[in-house]
């Protein structure tokens, strides 16, 4: 089922952010949300995940759909072990997929460690594992790979794209990284901070460094 957003206007304490945004996200595609800092991109993702409620408009999604969220920051409870962090989530079952994912990410040796003892890269790996282990229909990613080195980042990026294509999931990804956008996007949603609105969608064949950098330079 498509994820539908109808006439969405986001607010924060001081001002309106994105105004009157409507869009339909289809399964099996990678959507990048692109625009300046402070226009409400993260809040848009949080609204879809029911973490933020200060908006008008409608967000329509499959009620049975599983949503996972990859945050910028480490989101493991530091006083619990990795295993305990994962055991909190009933949606993670001991399936073949979970085992494959564990092997692919090589995290078996981290399971008994306390989250507070993990490095930044290890934490991101576990966050990533948790996000995919629930076999989500919608994946919301808010600059999730910032603390990783190039090799780790490429591995995880390839894995998530493969998941989206094979499982027909929807990935909505906030990023400022032109290489990432250029490489993985099916669609890029461009927002204007000055006009506080959604400007246009760039399809895969329209996305290139020149278009994206022109868009950044011309945006007031």
């Amino acid at each position: 089922m498509n994820l539908e957003i109808r006439n969405l206007t986001l607010f924060n304490d001081q001002e309106d952010l994105i105004k009157d945004f409507s869009y339909s996200f289809a399964p099996g595609f990678v959507y990048f949300v692109f625009g300046q800092i402070g226009l409400g991109k993260s809040l848009l993702l949080e609204s879809i995940a029911d973490l933020y409620s200060r908006y008008q408009g409608k967000i329509i999604k499959d009620p049975k759909a599983r949503i996972s969220f990859l945050f910028q920051k480490n989101m493991l409870i530091p006083w619990l072990t990795v295993q305990e962090n994962l055991a909190l989530i009933d949606q993670i079952q001991n399936t073949e997929w979970v085992q494959t994912l564990q092997d692919e990410l090589k995290i078996s040796n981290l399971l008994n460690k306390k989250a507070v003892d993990l490095s930044g890269g290890e934490l991101q790996k576990i966050n990533f594992y948790r996000a995919l282990a629930i076999e989500p229909n919608y994946i919301l990613a808010d600059e999730p790979f910032n603390s990783l080195d190039f090799k780790q980042k490429t591995e995880l990026e390839n894995l998530i794209i493969r998941y989206v294509k094979q499982r027909n999931a929807t990935l909505i990804w906030v990023s400022h990284d032109l290489i990432e956008i250029n490489k993985f996007s099916d669609f890029v949603l461009c927002f204007s901070k000055s006009e506080k609105r959604f400007l246009k969608t760039l399809a895969k064949d329209e996305v290139n460094y020149q278009t994206l950098s022109d868009y950044i330079v011309n945006e007031k």
Binding site: L51, S68, I89, R130
Partner: peptide
């Protein structure tokens, strides 16, 4: 937020 996203009891 993470507890809410993953519907922890």
């Amino acid at each position: 937020k993470i507890l809410k996203v993953y519907k922890v009891q």
